[in-house]
Amino acid sequence: MTAEILQLHGDRPPSLDPMMALVAADMNEVNAVILDRMQSQVPLIPELAGHLIAGGGKRMRPMLTLACGKLLDYPGHRHCKLAAAVEFIHTATLLHDDVVDGSDLRRGRKTANIIWGNSASVLVGDFLFSRAFEVMVEDGSLKVLKILSRASAVIAEGEVNQLSAQRRIETSEDQYLEIINAKTAELFAAACKIAAVVAERDEATEAALDAYGRNLGIAFQLVDDAIDYVSDEATMGKGVGDDFRDGKVTLPVILAYARGTAEEREFWKQAIVGHRTSDDDLAHATALLLKHDTIADTLARARHYGQRAVDAIGGFRASRAKAALTEAVAFAVARAY
């Protein structure tokens, strides 16, 4: 799939530029809502929230809401405020995740929890969740409220499920996929689906956009989990091997453990419980992943889900929006190359 899309682009690699150009005007409106709604009489709140929101993120999820609106020729502006709500939900989960994971870096900058402490990060995350729900209620659609509130609950369930699976080498591939579907893909799906609701399209259209976002989200997370072992800090914006040191059992590890010798399995057991986390151990883990082709197989799985995302919007007429959404899938997968 990726190779086919790359050919369509000629020599240039796929990027989010077409989607960014498509939604630029609407994105200005989204950013104005974000800036306005993160304000508070308590100075620490906009200071901390602004650190993360201004930290160089691509704003991919709110852009998906806007681009799906373009795909449906939606002429209004309701989706702009809702896209801001989507970004607030995402930002709140990042603040909470960095506390749970004890992360030092996010998008190449010190995390909020390192600068202001865990308590402030958790509480400002709660504030942003609350702002998101204020915006949803103002929109007035119970259906939108149901989609985004459910997404918020599912994301939290996914994070708890991931915490339960942490340092458990026996985590299954099915449980792993359940975790990433909840913690990552659910918000991608909701961000896309709400565009169909505000555009007052039928349930088939809602389902198509849900499927596009969900499969894109799964592909996105699969690539993240693969490149955690083979990329670099500058590219990822976080520490290399963080998942390994945190004892997260991701698909590359699940496959390597299943394919490994008794000696290799013992190494993985020791590593995942936290007894083998040195740089040499990380290098050995990466060598095992490469030996058993588990990075390549994880990326192949990402391409599979990427193709499912493209197929989900196959029934829509050719347009600039459809092309941008298709290229966004290629971008998500091509980050690994």
Score class of each variant (00 low, 15 high):
236 M>W: 08
155 I>N: 02
255 L>M: 15
243 D>M: 05
42 V>K: 12
209 L>H: 08
219 A>D: 05
298 T>F: 06
187 L>C: 00
277 T>Q: 12
140 G>W: 04
45 I>C: 09
30 V>T: 10
248 K>T: 11
141 S>C: 11
273 V>T: 09
275 H>M: 13
293 D>H: 14
150 R>Y: 10
189 A>W: 00
263 E>Y: 06
30 V>A: 04
247 G>Y: 03
9 H>M: 14
325 L>A: 05
284 H>R: 15
40 S>D: 10
188 F>A: 07
306 G>D: 09
308 R>W: 00
5 I>N: 12
75 P>S: 10
228 D>N: 14
41 Q>S: 15
268 W>R: 01
53 I>F: 01
74 Y>W: 13
201 R>H: 13
138 E>C: 03
147 I>V: 15
152 S>K: 05
8 L>Q: 15
36 D>P: 00
136 M>W: 12
272 I>P: 08
273 V>S: 03
318 A>M: 05
184 T>V: 14
205 T>F: 08
167 R>N: 13
173 E>D: 10
315 G>T: 11
87 E>P: 02
296 A>I: 00
122 V>D: 04
123 L>E: 09
80 C>H: 14
185 A>M: 06
254 I>S: 08
321 A>T: 07
188 F>K: 02
269 K>C: 09
56 G>M: 05
53 I>T: 01
219 A>M: 01
231 S>G: 15
275 H>Y: 12
39 Q>M: 10
90 H>K: 01
214 R>Q: 13
6 L>Q: 14
15 S>Y: 12
71 L>E: 01
303 R>I: 07
211 A>W: 00
187 L>R: 01
53 I>A: 02
207 A>D: 15
319 S>K: 00
142 L>S: 13
227 I>P: 03
16 L>W: 14
27 M>Q: 06
139 D>V: 10
116 W>C: 11
316 F>S: 08
92 A>I: 04
289 L>S: 02
65 T>D: 10
97 D>F: 01
295 I>Q: 02
220 F>K: 06
148 L>E: 06
188 F>Q: 09
238 K>D: 03
128 L>E: 06
155 I>D: 03
111 T>R: 02
9 H>Y: 14
142 L>P: 00
84 A>V: 10
83 A>L: 06
188 F>C: 10
314 G>K: 05
335 R>Q: 13
36 D>S: 13
214 R>N: 13
54 A>I: 00
71 L>A: 07
306 G>H: 09
307 Q>A: 15
328 A>Q: 10
298 T>S: 07
201 R>L: 07
208 A>M: 13
185 A>W: 03
144 V>A: 08
29 E>Y: 14
286 T>Y: 03
164 S>K: 14
93 T>N: 04
200 E>N: 13
19 M>T: 06
64 L>H: 11
166 Q>N: 12
240 V>F: 00
291 K>Q: 14
42 V>P: 10
47 E>Y: 09
209 L>P: 11
335 R>P: 03
156 A>Y: 03
112 A>S: 04
181 N>M: 13
48 L>Y: 01
296 A>V: 09
272 I>D: 07
